[in-house]
Design a protein around this nucleic acid. Structure first.
Lengths: 132, 132
DNA sequence: CGTATAGTGATACCCGTTATCATTTACGTC
DNA sequence: GACGTAAATGATAACGGGTATCACTATACG
């Protein structure tokens, strides 16, 4: 499946981007994805990469995380809500679900009268393959 | 207590910054803090604000969070490990601890062979005072 | 096929943050 | 208190990720 969403046209650039995202199993920044596209001969402008990633993110077809330095990274993901265990060296990611976390978040928010609540939980570490 | 750390000199600028941080009960960005300093007559350069905040953060005297847009915000905090429930309108924050989250994080990391693990959990919402 | 319209890309721009470097300040020592 | 030195400051340039602009191109659909 390489379509992006209803109302979005299918272009070579977007298909190339989705293709790259499918081949990679970890989080990659927009710039990395742009470079990867260039390497395989797909000349896609950086602006288009950002636009398409945003489309994909809005359609929940990719997950976005923000690294410890604030840079955004993207990855093809399942659609259920989940968190990530991300290798900060290679970007490889493991999806993890934790119902306990969700319920705790909801409880603590309710307890303090907060509404319209969202949360962000990312776990960063070094995976076994990337140990020094 | 307004000292910053061993090996750091005490300057008017840093004391003013710490003072402002003590008066405020929510997260504030570097630029907001810089503006607050200006309002109360303390002329502190923006570069110094960033440098001092980094010092304070390194000394674990302030907590840093990154908003959903990637901007860093700072707040005087207790030194124990904890998470935050942050109002995305006024910046007011509630500290929260969740041992269950810590143990879950450690377990999932160990299970997948990740080492040198850190995690980030921030909860954003709208507090009761800021409801429309 | 032809047209309306979404998409593209080069580039300028924005904004938060960091680096540079000359000047100033804090602080231990005499 | 005066000195000397290393740290700190601040104005500003530079940097980097991300977005806006706008003329041009390509897609979808009748």
């Amino acid at each position: 499946m390489t379509s992006i969403g209803v109302g979005a046209r299918s272009t070579k650039q977007r298909e190339a981007l989705v293709h790259v995202l499918d081949e990679v199993d970890g989080f990659r920044s927009a710039q990395q994805l742009h470079a990867l596209l260039g390497e395989r001969g797909a000349k896609v402008g950086i602006a288009t990469v950002y636009r398409s990633l945003q489309l994909l993110a809005d359609a929940a077809l990719v997950d976005v995380i923000h690294s410890e330095e604030g840079e955004a990274s993207y990855r093809r993901c399942s659609t259920r809500h989940h968190h990530h265990l991300v290798c900060r060296v290679c970007g490889r990611a493991v999806e993890a679900q934790a119902p306990a976390v969700e319920t705790w978040v909801a409880a603590i928010a309710a307890e303090h009268g907060f509404s319209d609540v969202s949360h962000d939980l990312e776990i960063f570490g070094t995976c076994a393959d990337c140990l020094p």
